[in-house]
């Protein structure tokens, strides 16, 4: 539980920094990326367990990041957090392998719970993989 590797990706610096600060208070010290390129670099350096992803970003946007991460590292659990609220976006994100889709402004407690759930899911995946490897 303690060592969740968490990555926050959002171009709103104020938002992402305060969020990181608050998560740190709850022993979830996350990495922060302010754009898609940085996020992809960090992901390839050290694969995170859970990733919070904004969709609307200049340059490489959230969709592309989601797509690439899910192709290269399907075990990464991606929680999409966006200011966009259409149902089509939601369906598309979930179809593309996102773990959850949350709308801004997000309830912080809800967010923490979702991160935990995503981490549990990640752990469960890993153990089934291990079991499969052993078996």
């Amino acid at each position: 539980m303690k060592n969740i590797r968490l990555l926050l990706v959002d171009d709103e610096q104020d938002f992402v920094e305060t969020l990181a600060e608050r998560l740190r208070l709850r022993d979830l010290g996350p990495d922060v990326a302010l754009n898609g390129e940085a996020a992809l670099t960090i992901v390839s350096d050290s694969i995170p367990d859970v990733m919070l992803l904004d969709l609307m970003m200049p340059g490489i946007d959230g969709w592309e990041v989601l797509d690439r991460v899910k192709t290269q590292f399907p075990e990464v659990q991606v929680i999409v957090v966006t200011g966009h609220g259409s149902d089509t976006d939601r369906d598309k994100a979930l179809a593309n392998g996102a773990f959850a889709y949350m709308r801004k402004p997000v309830d912080f407690d809800q967010l923490v719970i979702t991160i935990m759930a995503a981490y549990d899911c990640r752990v469960a995946m890993e153990s089934t993989e291990d079991a499969a490897a052993i078996g």
Binding site: E12, D14, T18, R22, G83, H84, P105
Partner: peptide, 21 residues
């Protein structure tokens, strides 16, 4: 515009939570 407003709104909500923390 609704989306545009959502961003500052979520930041403000975040800050309020931070103040609580």
């Amino acid at each position: 515009i609704a989306h545009e407003i959502n961003n500052p709104l979520s930041i403000m909500t975040q800050e309020a939570g931070w103040l609580e923390d």
